[in-house]
Design a binder for these strands. Structure first.
Lengths: 336, 336
DNA sequence: CTGTTAGCGCGTTCAA
DNA sequence: TTGAACGCGCTAACAG
């Protein structure tokens, strides 16, 4: 069906390896034959067969990317960042969606290694602390960079979650809020880090950390944020501000506070994480912390490619991307 | 580095092809040896090398996916739909981003074919009418399904854009709006189809189609929507409703109308396309037309896999997905 | 039932 | 400067 080296060799009456040498621009081939080969190759529409090439070179120029949910804006932007540097360096992306299922993740990683990817970038669905998986994978020899969710002794690129939590909480304190609640995410390093940052800021200002002021919700459902907020508002001493671990949670919180007749930012302050698109066009423009998603992706790809090409060594210092605070109406108290 | 058939054959003192037959669950192998092979394979951590397998089977179980922008929510959801059916049928996705550049698209498609993908799904960056490209690709023998943006004589899955335009405009008319403007997208089949639907609805109700009431903006920038709306509002007889070709355009329009002190839906009506996330939480909840993105992706993948496996024939009837009208505040006029 | 043989398309020796 | 020969890891035909 498609043109092979053999075909263009036959058409020219020369050998396959000469054609090959010519196409590789090797110096030990005469200008004349190179020109003939190049022309014939173009005429015939020759396209190198990468499967065959990969079999001998042991390189596919393919990076496996495994994420919990392709369609979530966080991951789709991280992937964009990955692709920006990967495609520039001649790599393609082989994609897998795990639906937040650790078992499926392990399976997919295994088949990707079977597909001979040169390296892997993984946003893991494993709960924080489940570290044995990564030890097993080391033997395969395929370099792996984790993104977003951190595990010990791995190559990692992601947001500085403790800093995210600290920035957000500190900001609320500066705005004069005093009873600050936190709606946290599930048991992943990201949620844990943000929670720690929240506590750190409260401690710094000698404010009490009330147990009841920390509630949990899924990361990407506004319904969870809504429910948690309703719970918080029913307290005998309800909070005067909420640090939501994600923008979707914050949107749910926003909805709940408004249904309760509270007005932001005066009755209650609110800040999320993620800098979602159109956050400034919500009923109340939403303050948030930007994780720098594209940068997370591009840094991860750079690191991985350095690992693949041997430019980076095996030491596993985590790369933490500095978050940016984005202040909008929802947390900008007019009266201190 | 990794285990081959040869290694497990050697470890068991049998031949490679016996091992192979056992692993393939072929019926002409004794239960005993199959069991021994399976056990040894598991112990050694054998993973089939897909590159080698693909070279002989001429199948990679990989679908190439080429889109203008990975991070746009439209495409990331279409990709999710593709992945849902592809992964269920044992295919992986090889991703390419073209940044809306037709030249880059052609290049990427060519290298993907070189990578021996079993089929391609393309959201093309070529302007409507540039059809020669697809003719050239037919020779490669690799099945191709286009998504979102239609071209003649190709396999296609996408929204029914004329129906989208018709639904939106008809809805505005039903709500009592009489001077309906349209902010259209760029020169792609989607924008053209929506424009045609808009005109069709106006004609049906014997309403005039004013040239000045149709303005163009980029699909995915609210800035374009903002500018176009400002232009419309400055008219001597400004419109009393706007059909925006996309939700981002509609968000820009919403912003502009509010800066002009107009209140929706009474002073002016507004509807977009895309059913963006959190559209109901905008300052005015946004009416929109849902294109059914996931379904576009999954239908495209089904069709492509049928083409690959020979279950579908070469006839190229376009598959149009029925849009759904979603009515929210921005177009719900209280007083007729 | 099992082993032998021959390729898939390409890159890389080494001779000529 | 060019060509012949071998092997990457696997599948598939055929022989025993």
């Amino acid at each position: 069906m498609s043109i092979r080296l053999k075909d263009i060799a036959a058409a020219l009456g020369i050998s396959i390896s000469t054609v090959n040498a010519a196409l590789q621009n090797r110096s030990d081939i005469s200008k004349a034959t190179r020109a003939r080969v190049l022309k014939k190759a173009r005429d015939l529409g020759y396209r190198p067969n990468w499967v065959a090439r990969s079999l001998v070179t042991q390189k596919t120029q393919i990076i496996g990317v495994v994420v919990p949910d392709l369609s979530r804006s966080f991951f789709s932007q991280v992937i964009k960042g990955i692709d920006m540097v990967a495609s520039a360096k001649g790599y393609h992306l082989l994609l897998c969606n795990t639906d937040e299922d650790p078992a499926r993740e392990d399976e997919e990683v295994s088949t990707l290694i079977g597909k001979q990817v040169d390296g892997l970038i993984i946003g893991s669905a494993h709960p924080a602390g489940e570290c044995a998986v990564w030890r097993r994978l080391e033997q395969s020899g395929v370099p792996i960079v984790l993104v977003d969710r951190w595990f010990p002794k791995t190559h990692f690129v992601g947001g500085d979650d403790e800093q995210i939590g600290f920035l957000a909480t500190e900001h609320l304190i500066q705005q004069g809020y005093r009873r600050i609640a936190h709606i946290r995410g599930p048991n992943l390093s990201t949620a844990i880090g943000r929670l720690n940052g929240y506590k750190k800021a409260l401690r710094k200002h000698k404010m009490p950390i009330k147990r009841g002021y920390v509630r949990e919700a899924g990361y990407h459902t506004e319904a969870g944020g809504y429910g948690a907020t309703v719970d918080l508002l029913r307290f005998s001493s309800p909070p005067d501000a909420i640090f939501a671990a994600s923008d979707p949670i914050a949107v749910g919180a926003l909805d709940a506070t408004q249904k309760y007749g509270l007005s932001l930012p005066d009755d209650i302050g609110l800040i999320g994480v993620g800098n979602m698109q159109y956050g400034q066009y919500l009923t109340v423009p939403l303050s948030t912390v930007d994780q720098q998603r594209i940068e997370i992706g591009s840094k991860a790809a750079s690191l991985l490619i350095d690992l693949i090409t041997g430019k980076a060594k095996g030491n596993t210092r985590p790369v933490l991307i500095e978050p940016k605070l984005i202040v909008r109406t929802s947390s900008s108290r007019r009266s201190q």
